[in-house]
Design a protein around this nucleic acid. Sequence first.
DNA 1: ACGCACTCCGTAAACGTTTACGAATGTATG
DNA 2: CATACATTCGTAAACGTTTACGGAGTGCGT
Lengths: 347, 347
Amino acid sequence: MKGIHQLAEHLNISIGTVSRALNGKPDVNEETRRRVLAAAEELGYVANQSGRSLRQGETKVIGLMIESSKETVENADNFFLGVTSGLQSVFARHKLDLLMLPCPSDEDPHEYLKRMVARRIVDAMIISDTQRVDRRIDFLSRAKIPFVALGRSLSASNFPWIDLDFEGVADHAVERLISLGHRRIAITAPSSEANLGYLFIDSYRRALERHDIPFDPTLVIRVKSSEQGGYQAAHELLLLEERPTAVILIYELMAIGLYRRLMESSVMPGRDLAVIGFRDAPRARFLQPSLSCFRISLYDLGVALGRMLLATMPAYRDFYPGGERNIIWPLELMPGESDAFDVGAMV
Amino acid sequence: MKGIHQLAEHLNISIGTVSRALNGKPDVNEETRRRVLAAAEELGYVANQSGRSLRQGETKVIGLMIESSKETVENADNFFLGVTSGLQSVFARHKLDLLMLPCPSDEDPHEYLKRMVARRIVDAMIISDTQRVDRRIDFLSRAKIPFVALGRSLSASNFPWIDLDFEGVADHAVERLISLGHRRIAITAPSSEANLGYLFIDSYRRALERHDIPFDPTLVIRVKSSEQGGYQAAHELLLLEERPTAVILIYELMAIGLYRRLMESSVMPGRDLAVIGFRDAPRARFLQPSLSCFRISLYDLGVALGRMLLATMPAYRDFYPGGERNIIWPLELMPGESDAFDVGAMV
DNA sequence: ACGCACTCCGTAAACGTTTACGAATGTATG
DNA sequence: CATACATTCGTAAACGTTTACGGAGTGCGT
């Protein structure tokens, strides 16, 4: 099956009619439409995407840009795959396909994005890992490419995004620990430029100050958000003169390395040090003692992202009226054993 | 910047010359080419992919089809991201882009593939998770789409693939355990139709019989290849009348659940039960006792896949002469503490 | 002065679609 | 019966490229 021409010829019909029949246009006899659809099915005809998108300037493809940095790979959480299924459930209703665009680690994300967009391979983009200042946001806005970002940014004032509720998490975690009697609470922050760290720390600081606990910069541990980072964080914690009684992890996988290092010094998580994690992956549940952490449904997040994106696209806007343009995604605390002790009972 | 026309107009030059200049065709003045490239850079012109691929029938895009099944997401290993970076390092040399095509979990992979291919969005495909009989292989062969599979299959006799050395791993693991004195060795197998399970178990069986140890079907534990599966596997192991002294895991993440369940019954991995894993993710190293497992470099695997694929494509064949058409990918044992004991010392 | 080879460039066709427009037919309306 | 309108379909242009072909200009040998 070459193209629409052969299909039309096979039916003794003009290509215009065939095209209209396939695309559900109104001015075509129902009987004819039936025949066309049947023939297309039988001969396995599917429209050539290049021809179609050339003509109508759209591709029916949404791109999800991800970064396959070394850190991401090592962290080995399927964050994007999880989000993907939520996205697809939304897109499927509109016969949109989702493509993942993995930015090579040695290429500037901004350049990569420009290349992809200019090639006109996708109609809209979902970008992730937004930086504190992120040129991609300016670029997409200016180029009038519909997009939604997973992560806030200071680069533009008004663009659609969804971000995890870092502030809420930090706040909630501090409050909880304080209510358990802790006064000396450490926190981890990423060493990268990602935006999330600032919000996380700021909120942590404010929560402390609300309880008249002075902010101690030595309690902010800057390490990689990975298992190795967790190990490193524990190491640094143990070196502090006045050791904290609790620690808040910005990334739950860090707990694995952290536990490891603590055990090496016979410091028992959940007894000698309270630990709370953030953004659980299922495997954190298997730690012992089990990790208290904030959960997130990646599927639901994907659904929300998809809806928000479509709401910005003229062709689909009507399906998703009145949605928020920005969402701070709430997380729910799943209590575990790692922080379930009263600091008063400590040695 | 609309298209090549504006660029040509801006330069007072014909579009034909511009196109030739950009594509490195010979019959264009070097001075002109320089000007064209400069202008393209300045105005941010990039060829519209639809127009280009429509004309020349190729897209310069390679597709990597992945399945975002629930199990994959839960297992949360970044297998594909790891492979991706290896692939990209090969493709970058030929200005090929890699797109990941995530098959929705509620769609038949075969149908999905057909749709994607028919749309002519990619020139070639890498498929993964090949089943024991896999219609995609027939389809791609018949449609003459260049492809390479990650995983063997019985569907066709001669197609390019790379597969992990399941047989070697099972063999090596059994030999090692036997040399440590073990005689009663359990093994896990996936409950799915994936091809790997059969090879794994067969090789396990042959290795046992080589040492005159009768094959005991009750020692083959069929569970999901996930942490939950590991938990389940441990549970079943503990229920056996004559408990095995060692277990081989087909998927290293299972170790996390397995450890957990064993601990619950005060069975200590590495002392009361030897454990060997397969296809490590970095995090397995953080288990305590550390897991003995077979490693794999996802990056190298990606490179090999990319090379093999390009070798099957006429346009790139010359760059990769004499490569293998099938590769059984070797894995290296990383000894840990989980099997480092002599069974003679056991209670 | 002429032919020839070579270099460089412009012209136009082709790729497979979608869609604006108008033609043809039938049907209701004055 | 003439006209208007609705339904259905065919025609052709357009989308942005690449590329075969041929033409213009130049240099060179005869």
